[in-house]
Design a protein around this nucleic acid. Sequence first.
DNA 1: CTGAAAGCGCTTACAG
DNA 2: CTGAAAGCGCTTACAG
Lengths: 345, 345
Amino acid sequence: MKKVSMKDIAKELNTSITTVSFVINGKSEEMGISPVTAKKVRDLIKKRGFNPNSAARILRTGKSKTIGLIVEDIGNYFFGNIAKVIEKEAHKNGYNVFFSSTENNDNTAKELITKMRNSSVDGYIITATQGLKDDIVKLKDENVPFVLIDRLVPNVETNYVILDNYIGSYDLTKHLLDNGYSRIGFISIFSEMSAMVEREKGFMNAMADADITVQPKKILKVTFGETDENIIKAIKKYLVKNPDIDALFFATNYLGVMGIEALQQSNLNIPADIAVVSFDDNDLFRLLSPSITVAAQPIEEIATESIQLLLRIIKKEQKPLKTVGEIIKPKIIIRNSSPKKTKKA
Amino acid sequence: MKKVSMKDIAKELNTSITTVSFVINGKSEEMGISPVTAKKVRDLIKKRGFNPNSAARILRTGKSKTIGLIVEDIGNYFFGNIAKVIEKEAHKNGYNVFFSSTENNDNTAKELITKMRNSSVDGYIITATQGLKDDIVKLKDENVPFVLIDRLVPNVETNYVILDNYIGSYDLTKHLLDNGYSRIGFISIFSEMSAMVEREKGFMNAMADADITVQPKKILKVTFGETDENIIKAIKKYLVKNPDIDALFFATNYLGVMGIEALQQSNLNIPADIAVVSFDDNDLFRLLSPSITVAAQPIEEIATESIQLLLRIIKKEQKPLKTVGEIIKPKIIIRNSSPKKTKKA
DNA sequence: CTGAAAGCGCTTACAG
DNA sequence: CTGAAAGCGCTTACAG
């Protein structure tokens, strides 16, 4: 069951491979192939079910019409939907998407970049991991088109599309403060990546602007990749150690989910006992009673901007070396988990 | 900034491309390359950062060490996590994964299969769409390795890994009946795909076994791809038209989510006004108050079985043409949305 | 133990 | 208007 090739088509039509190639690539007019010949070629291609071999084309042209998408975790709501939108947009532009999860592991990320490089991807959209700086710098030095999303690499100028994490965090904290909460706990992950750093800074600055000192023990950081159970356990322990907090700020989607589980297991009511706000939105936050106040990331916008920026770079419409990034504004959605605080007896 | 090739390595070492190739492919022993030469080659490869060009290798061997994963929607919890596990398992075995969403659209699915075919994927894991029969039959006829997941294609014998949808649905319904509910509504999507058909059959048979006739108007089917708003609207309308139902069975994850939203908007309490059960599990179902009783799909198991089955077929350890499938048992998780019914006045 | 060479299926500069 | 041919970077049968 041999696959049919351009040679077969050419032979059957008593023409040359060149002609067939021109027709396939829509260059028949430009190259002056007679419409009659072109039609004959097109018809036979359809009849024989011919499809050009990608490997040969890539080998020859060095272009794969494929972009590599490296995310943290494709199983996560945020990245799964980012991937979905990027894929759709890429297909619209004739590009395929190769995607893969780093699980926030540097080595996995490095391997993925090399692997995709060997597959001749035309460009990357990357969610960087913590120790990826050298590899990003290398891509940049070698003029490989790429766009960073979700987080920046400190001290490296690149193209990027990120959320304004600082503002989201500041505003979410301000909202709690405005509603009368002051003993606010902040739950995040250990990370030097920009997104997490900015979220913490936004929280701290909002607190400072309200003249509130944040005690270190009010801040809990867990390790990325820790099991759900251990995260929940850590949050429960934190709750016992901090009985005075009146509100909790979760710095990510999955921490919020784990946190709600921990609160339920600790028999603490939202918002009567503790108000809750979280970064990112999801079905749970929206439909839980009470629904959770969040700083939502406009997924569609982030995904669309990043793929379009990348395509512009690939098509050389935009200099890759000049820092051109998009900063997307988060959307604060106020729900029922953070109402105006009622005076306690 | 030219990439270094095997030729460059060979030239610099005054040896032949053949030798370099053997070393790269771990055949130096087998081919009797002297350990000294092999080491020299390996060292220079590392020094120069050489990586073999995939396109050339694929063109030459016809093998890409890549598998194509076609899912319904990568942004969905179930498929996102399926993808994640499959990717991990594939990497462990030296394979890459190309994945893409069909959005349940036949044409998209057909295009994806062709596109991946042209990229010389070594095999597929496919979530079929409704009109994909011919394409599946073609893959089978041409001896292309593939495994169907989540749903079968009617009247075509293939390798597959699917859930026992019938049992899951039957047991979930039986659970409601046992707890005293009898006016049960069934909400599903229009689909002739096996998974949906089996779920409906499981429900109907459980009802029939309890000697309960299901009125047609108790069954609501929505169109896949309909907007969330329209689905919620349809469910709300259904609730108004069926004020007597005492329990609702949602046939999928996202219908359950939409259903909960519809119930909230209609001011109906779970389970006091209406008990709820759903197929599939997710964070919302687990953490909502009350938590939702579900038939959960063992995602890890489904994903692992399917990739392993596919790899066995690719490696010819298993005949692809003989139907060998795995049927995975769903896990009924009884939560608080379907308690024993209390007698109403 | 190692090398020269064919060929995978394309694209494209060149020739006519 | 169309064709012959080089070459992308590998793998592998063949030769020695």
